[in-house]
Amino acid sequence: MSDLSLARDHAFHLARTLMVPVTLFKSGDQYGALPSEEIDADDDLEPLYEFDPHERGPAH
């Protein structure tokens, strides 16, 4: 599993756990995830994906 794939999986699960939108970002050569509302336009981050748990249907 690639680093990006692992980071994407963790960001998705974080969004589902916290029930808030979570942004997966890249900073330098590292990936991270934060609740979307905590990211400022001035941050030196490259947003990659945003996971909104309210836009997904039930798991089954």
Results as ranks from 00 to 15, higher is better:
residue 30 Q to S: 12
residue 45 L to W: 07
residue 46 E to D: 14
residue 32 G to Q: 04
residue 19 M to F: 05
residue 41 A to K: 10
residue 44 D to M: 10
residue 37 E to V: 08
residue 35 P to C: 03
residue 13 H to F: 04
residue 22 V to E: 01
residue 7 A to P: 15
residue 22 V to R: 00
residue 43 D to L: 07
residue 21 P to K: 02
residue 9 D to S: 13
residue 48 L to C: 13
residue 25 F to R: 03
residue 32 G to D: 04
residue 10 H to T: 04
residue 42 D to T: 13
residue 37 E to N: 12
residue 40 D to G: 05
residue 25 F to W: 06
residue 5 S to H: 11
residue 31 Y to P: 00
residue 33 A to C: 13
residue 36 S to D: 12
residue 28 G to E: 03
residue 12 F to P: 04
residue 43 D to Q: 07
residue 18 L to M: 05
residue 4 L to T: 02
residue 43 D to H: 13
residue 30 Q to L: 09
residue 44 D to R: 11
residue 11 A to Q: 09
residue 41 A to I: 05
residue 26 K to H: 03
residue 25 F to N: 04
residue 3 D to L: 10
residue 12 F to G: 11
residue 27 S to F: 01
residue 36 S to N: 11
residue 33 A to F: 09
residue 12 F to L: 15
residue 42 D to P: 04
residue 33 A to G: 10
residue 31 Y to C: 00
residue 3 D to R: 07
residue 42 D to R: 12
residue 39 I to E: 08
residue 31 Y to S: 00
residue 17 T to K: 11
residue 48 L to F: 06
residue 39 I to V: 11
residue 18 L to N: 00
residue 36 S to R: 06
residue 36 S to E: 08
residue 45 L to Q: 10
residue 30 Q to K: 08
residue 23 T to E: 08
residue 11 A to M: 09
residue 42 D to M: 10
residue 18 L to W: 00
residue 31 Y to D: 01
residue 9 D to W: 02
residue 31 Y to L: 01
residue 11 A to T: 06
residue 38 E to G: 12
residue 16 R to T: 02
residue 47 P to N: 11
residue 32 G to R: 03
residue 24 L to P: 08
residue 26 K to P: 01
residue 38 E to W: 07
residue 36 S to G: 07
residue 39 I to T: 04
residue 21 P to C: 07
residue 31 Y to I: 00
residue 32 G to N: 05
residue 30 Q to A: 13
residue 9 D to V: 00
residue 9 D to P: 00
